[in-house]
């Protein structure tokens, strides 16, 4: 799987209240949630983001609440993948469970700038910065997570297991 897109850059500790503020959590409709993605983070993000874009952030992306609304809103806004130095753990598992591709990479998040065009090779864990002509590596995705992704997320994985038993 090759993902290619334009980058929105964020800093350290982007929390789930920043990704999708709690005041919008009286719904779980993905399109409704996407309208308010990163609304409080400045940048007029919801009106400027377009399908196919990528998010690149520093450390501890998605910290705070367990709200799955956060990766759901990101996915519904058409963001193809999130690259960060590290992810908060509930966000990490939620992303795999719902099938939002995420990549942990030390040097990528340090060097990629807002507006850069990047290409992520999900199978190899290679990230290419087309704008700057640089290459970075992402941490390999553990085999179990790969199994989740190829099953199409946790729900489909569970469904298969139940049907098989």
């Amino acid at each position: 799987m090759i993902l290619k897109g334009r980058v929105w850059k964020f800093g350290n500790n982007i929390d789930t209240d920043a990704i999708i503020p709690a005041r919008y959590l009286n719904t779980s409709d993905p399109d409704e949630l996407a309208k308010h993605l990163m609304e409080d983070a400045g940048k007029e993000f919801p009106s400027k983001v377009s399908a196919g874009d990528m998010i690149v952030a520093e450390a501890n992306f998605g910290c705070g609440s367990s709200r799955e609304h956060a990766p759901i809103a990101i996915k519904a806004a058409g963001i193809q993948a999130v690259v960060a130095k590290s992810f908060a753990r509930i966000f990490y598992r939620n992303a795999f469970n719902i099938g939002l591709p995420i990549f942990e990479s030390e040097d990528a998040s340090g060097k990629i700038k807002e507006g850069d065009e990047i290409e992520v090779d999900a199978d190899k864990g290679a990230i290419r910065n087309i704008t700057r002509n640089e290459e970075y590596t992402a941490k390999p995705i553990p085999p179990f997570m790969q199994e989740l992704i190829s099953a199409g997320g946790l729900i489909k994985w569970t469904k298969k297991r139940i049907e098989a038993s």
């Binding site: 367990s66 509930i90 719902i98």
Partner: peptide, 20 residues
């Protein structure tokens, strides 16, 4: 530990959850 809604859905069906 806190998990996501999808984890809860799966565990409600199976009584199990994956952990590292």
């Amino acid at each position: 530990t806190g998990v996501g809604s999808t984890d809860v859905a799966s565990a409600m069906a199976t009584g199990e959850c994956w952990f590292k």
